[in-house]
C-alpha cells in the first residue's frame, strides 16, 4: 500500500517538475503594448509577401494556442489538431464560395462547427489517456485527406481539386491593400482570442484544467467534473484551431485535401513544444518557428525542414522542455530579481 502511494507521489512530482509553467504568468503590460504596436506598425513597413507570411504566423499562433489549451494546460496530448484546422479552413472556403457569406462572418461559424466536432471527439478522448489519445488523434490526422476527398461531399469540398476563394478588400474605403487589411484583421481576431485564453487560463476553469493534468484523481476529489471539463476543454481547443484554419484559408485563398496531411498536425505539435508547453506567449514563438524555419531550411534541400524540425524537437525535449517561452521567462527572472 505504501509503495503505491510513493509511486503515485513521484509520478505527480515528475509531471510538475517537467512542466514548470503551471501558472499563466502575465507578460508585463508594457511589453504587450509594445509588441502589439510593433505588430501593427509592420503593416506599413514590410512587403506584401512578408505580410502574407505574418498573417500565416498569426493564424498558426492561434492554432498552437488552441492545441496548448488541450495539450499543455489540460494534458490531453493531441496529434490530430490538423483535423480541426482543416475543418475551419473548409468551413470558411465552402461558406465563401457556395453561399456567398462574407469572410468575417465565416469565422464565428467555423468556430462553432469546429467546437462541436471537438466536443464530439472529446467524448471518446475521455476514455483514452496519454499515449492512447496521442495514437487515436494521430490516426485521425492521417485519415483527414481521405475524408476530405470523400465522393459523397464532393459537391461542397470540390474533391481533389479543392476550392479557390478570393482575398477580401479593405472595407470602409480604408487606404489599405488586401494583404495589409487581412493582416490587421487577423491580428485583431488573434488579439481577442489571446485575451480570452489568458482570462480562461488564469481563472477558476484554468486552474481546474491544470489540476486535471497534474493529478486527475485529486482534481476529481476536489469536486471537478472531469468529463464535463475535459470535453469542453477539447471543444474550446478545437474552436481556436478551427478559427486559425479559417484565417489561413482566407489568406492562402485556396483549400485542397493535400494541404491537410498529417504533417499539419505534426507541425502544430512541433510549434507547441518549441514555443513552450503550457505557455500563452509560447504560441507566438512556436508559430514564428514553423513559419520561418522552412523558408530558411528549404534553401538547403526540400527535405531539410522536416529534418530540422525533428532534430530541434528532440533537442528541445532533452535540453529545453519548457520551450522558448520558458527560456525567456528564466532570463527575465534572472535579470529582474524582484519579479520572482
Amino acid at each position: 500500500m505504501s509503495g503505491e502511494i510513493t509511486a503515485e507521489a513521484t509520478e505527480a512530482s515528475t509531471s510538475i517538475r517537467t512542466q514548470p509553467s503551471t501558472r499563466a504568468r502575465p507578460v508585463p503590460f508594457a511589453v504587450t503594448v509594445i509588441v502589439l504596436a510593433g505588430a501593427v506598425a509592420l503593416t506599413f513597413l514590410v512587403s506584401n509577401y512578408h505580410l502574407f507570411q505574418l498573417t500565416m504566423l498569426v493564424g498558426y499562433a492561434v492554432a498552437i494556442l488552441g492545441l496548448n489549451i488541450a495539450t499543455g494546460y489540460n494534458g490531453q496530448i493531441s496529434l490530430g489538431h490538423g483535423a480541426f484546422y482543416a475543418v475551419g479552413a473548409y468551413t470558411a472556403a465552402i461558406l465563401m464560395s457556395n453561399f456567398d457569406v462574407p469572410y468575417w462572418a465565416t469565422l464565428p461559424i467555423a468556430a462553432i462547427i469546429s467546437a462541436i466536432i471537438g466536443f464530439l471527439i472529446g467524448f471518446p478522448a475521455l476514455r483514452f489517456t496519454g499515449l492512447y489519445l496521442a495514437l487515436t488523434t494521430f490516426a485521425l490526422a492521417v485519415a483527414v485527406p481521405q475524408l476530405l476527398k470523400f465522393k459523397g461531399i464532393e459537391d461542397w469540398t470540390g474533391g481533389v481539386q479543392g476550392i479557390v476563394i478570393s482575398k477580401p478588400e479593405a472595407p470602409f474605403g480604408l487606404p489599405l491593400n488586401p494583404d495589409q487589411w487581412l493582416y490587421l484583421f487577423s491580428l485583431g481576431v488573434a488579439g481577442l482570442l489571446f485575451l480570452f485564453a489568458w482570462n480562461l487560463i488564469r481563472g477558476r476553469i484554468g486552474r481546474a484544467m491544470m489540476a486535471i493534468r497534474d493529478h486527475a484523481l485529486a482534481a476529481e476529489a476536489m469536486g471537478i467534473d472531469l468529463a464535463l471539463l475535459k470535453t469542453r476543454t477539447f471543444a474550446v481547443s478545437a474552436m481556436y484551431t478551427g478559427v486559425a484554419g479559417a484565417l489561413s484559408a482566407i489568406a492562402v485563398e485556396f483549400v485542397a485535401p493535400d494541404s491537410f496531411t498529417v504533417f499539419v498536425s505534426i507541425f502544430l505539435f512541433v510549434g507547441l513544444v518549441v514555443g513552450g508547453v503550457a505557455s500563452i506567449t509560447g504560441a507566438i514563438f512556436g508559430a514564428a518557428f514553423i513559419v520561418f524555419i522552412p523558408n530558411i531550411a528549404e534553401q538547403v534541400s526540400k527535405a531539410a525542414p522536416g529534418a530540422i524540425y525533428g532534430v530541434i524537437l528532440i533537442a528541445f525535449m532533452y535540453l529545453m522542455p519548457s520551450g522558448v517561452a520558458g527560456l525567456l521567462r528564466r532570463l527575465y527572472h534572472r535579470l529582474v530579481p524582484s519579479s520572482r
Binding site: T14, A307, G310, V311
Partner: peptide, 20 residues
Amino acid sequence: APVLALVGVFIGLLLIVNAM
C-alpha cells in the same frame, strides 16, 4: 520522462527519418 516528452521524441524521430 513524461508521456508528452516521449511523444515528442517519437515524432522527432519520425520527422528525421522521413526527411532523411
